[in-house]
Simulated assay, not measured.
Amino acid sequence: MATSENKTSPALVFAAWFVVLIPAAWGIYFTLLNALKLLQ
């Protein structure tokens, strides 16, 4: 039985992580800014 593997393009993997990490980083950044306001 022959198996064919579908390789995912590294550029596609990078683009997918970029789409996930940018909003996550934005949310973490503003959460930390607001937390610092509360602690002052």
Score class of each variant (00 low, 15 high):
A25T: 09
K37N: 04
A2L: 13
L36V: 06
V20E: 04
F30V: 05
A11I: 03
N6R: 12
A2P: 15
Q40P: 15
E5Q: 15
V13D: 01
A35D: 05
A35S: 07
A25C: 15
K7M: 09
P10E: 06
S9M: 02
Y29M: 08
A15C: 01
L12W: 13
A25N: 10
T31K: 13
F30C: 02
F30G: 05
V13S: 05
K37G: 04
A11N: 05
G27H: 06
T31W: 14
A11V: 05
L33T: 07
L21I: 02
S9W: 01
P23K: 02
I22R: 01
S9R: 00
K37D: 03
L36Y: 06
L12K: 12
S4G: 13
A35G: 07
E5D: 12
Y29K: 10
L32R: 15
V13K: 09
T31F: 15
L38G: 14
A2V: 13
W26Q: 05
L32W: 11
I28Y: 09
A16N: 00
A25I: 07
M1Q: 11
P10G: 03
G27N: 08
T3R: 14
W17M: 11
A16V: 01
L39N: 13
I22T: 04
M1N: 15
I28L: 14
W17A: 05
L32F: 15
F14N: 12
L38Q: 10
L21K: 01
V13Q: 05
Y29A: 13
T31Q: 13
L36H: 06
N34W: 02
M1K: 11
P10W: 06
I28R: 03
I28W: 14
A16C: 01
L36M: 14
N6V: 11
M1I: 10
S4D: 12
E5C: 12
A35R: 01
A25Q: 05
L33G: 04
T3G: 10
V13W: 01
A16Q: 02
K37I: 00
A2N: 13
V19L: 09
G27F: 12
G27Q: 07
G27M: 08
S9V: 01
L21N: 02
L36D: 08
W17E: 03
F18V: 00
A2M: 14
L21M: 07
A16F: 02
W26C: 09
A25Y: 11
Q40I: 14
L33A: 10
Y29S: 06
N34T: 00
L33M: 09
F14L: 13
L21A: 11
